[in-house]
Design a protein around this nucleic acid. Structure first.
Lengths: 230, 230
DNA sequence: ATAATCAAGATTGTATACAATAATACAATT
DNA sequence: AATTGTATTATTGTATACAATCTTGATTAT
């Protein structure tokens, strides 16, 4: 549960050494640059980034609470592995919460948010047809962020954003397939349902959207890259 | 998202100064001893607990990520307030996930877990009739923990435990009312549904159980104690 | 009297020194 | 040869020293 103020957090991350270390390590773990069970030594990390052990240690504590590393007392810090089961569970949970989020959005979405969604989808059609994968990933990110913001629940929004981040590296690969176009169409359907205040339909579609993303990943054998599938 | 190894974490907490500071502060915040917006100074906290600033700072980083305090760079750490809206949202999310958890438990619960549930409920009837509130709170805690473990998803289990903890102080008060008996009956119904592998019923009952807990809290005007109800 | 400025103190951010613990290598014993 | 004990080294845990930043209050100019 990290329900802290995002704005202030960004400031911290940008200007403090601890924040820089935290972001860097987080990125490296999520991107797979740091592999499962790899040991992180305070001194070498510090030297690499040109800082002392103190900010490194503080970053470690955060990463530990986030579950990205496991700290064994007096022994060291190790990259926590995500098993295939974990990924499956995350998608299951996300699918539920994303449905809930879409349902809530029916009542709380603003005109500005709806407009940005429409623009997002419109652009998505263009980039999907052109095969611009980076832009598609970017648009997908943004679509879901808007949806999360539209539910008008900071708690749910932050939770969903956490999970979204967590599966970032997986999603990046998934969207590199032909799913880009289909995904964009699903976004449109979700948006239409929200626009029409059709709670049930919005929930159902958002739910399905996440399940589809997972299914697609499994079908393409992509999730085996991230730890043993069980 | 704190999906770290619980066993190792306990060890850390017990034997390291940082862990002790973390637990102490966490408890004080959740128990309401440290009030909303109260400033936490590294030196005074350290002096009070007989440690230097280093472990205090590391504990701060974790509490920040957990959302219990807000750190403003170069300024200080402040206890984050939970608004009434936050509490409502937490219960809403919990209600959904607890339903999901109960449904999964239908397929994955072990005989031992079922047995412990039965014993838990049996004991609950006794203590409810006697008005033993402390024991009821303890049993309620344990019942939900068993349920979380029975879903066979570490991800979901940890998430639900996090939220469970988060509303601990509120729940303690809630159970001090006549709801103890009713709650225990609801536990029994949930268990029966799981035992019968009735997925839909289990999900529905668990869902309702959390909603009832929330409704009871609102009816008794208990959640106003924890920040403005919006 | 009010507002602006600046200096002193307090507090956090970072680096480093020291202590405690664990890992490693090697020797002694069986 | 295998195992246990021990000394050495490496690494983490904690405390403290120093730097940067913010707060506060007095002083001065308007």
């Amino acid at each position: 549960m990290s329900e802290n103020n995002d704005v202030k957090k960004e400031v911290t991350d940008k200007y403090s050494l601890r924040g820089r270390v935290y972001n860097r390590l987080r990125e490296d773990i999520l991107s797979g640059k740091l592999k499962e069970n790899e040991e992180l030594r305070e001194i070498s990390i510090g030297e690499e980034l040109g800082v002392s052990r103190t900010p490194v240690r503080e970053a470690f504590r955060q990463l530990e609470l986030e579950g990205l590393i496991t700290i064994i007392p007096n022994k060291g810090a190790f990259v926590t592995g995500i098993t295939g089961k974990d990924v499956k569970d995350i998608y299951m949970i996300r699918s539920h919460l994303e449905g809930l989020c879409a349902r809530l959005a029916c009542d709380h979405i603003t005109d500005e948010q709806l407009e940005e969604m429409e623009e997002n989808i419109y652009l998505g059609e263009f980039h999907a047809s052109k095969g611009h994968m980076d832009q598609m990933a970017e648009l997908d990110n943004r679509f879901h962020d808007i949806l999360y913001e539209a539910c008008d629940s900071k708690m749910l929004e932050n939770l969903l954003k956490d999970y979204h981040q967590y599966v970032l590296r997986i999603r990046k690969k998934t969207l590199s397939t032909s799913r880009g176009t289909v995904s964009n169409e699903e976004h449109r359907a979700i948006m239409e349902a929200i626009k029409a205040h059709d709670h049930k339909q919005a929930e159902k579609l958002a739910n399905k959207h996440i399940n589809n993303a997972y299914q697609n990943m499994v079908d393409n054998g992509l999730y085996n890259l991230y730890g043993n599938p069980e």
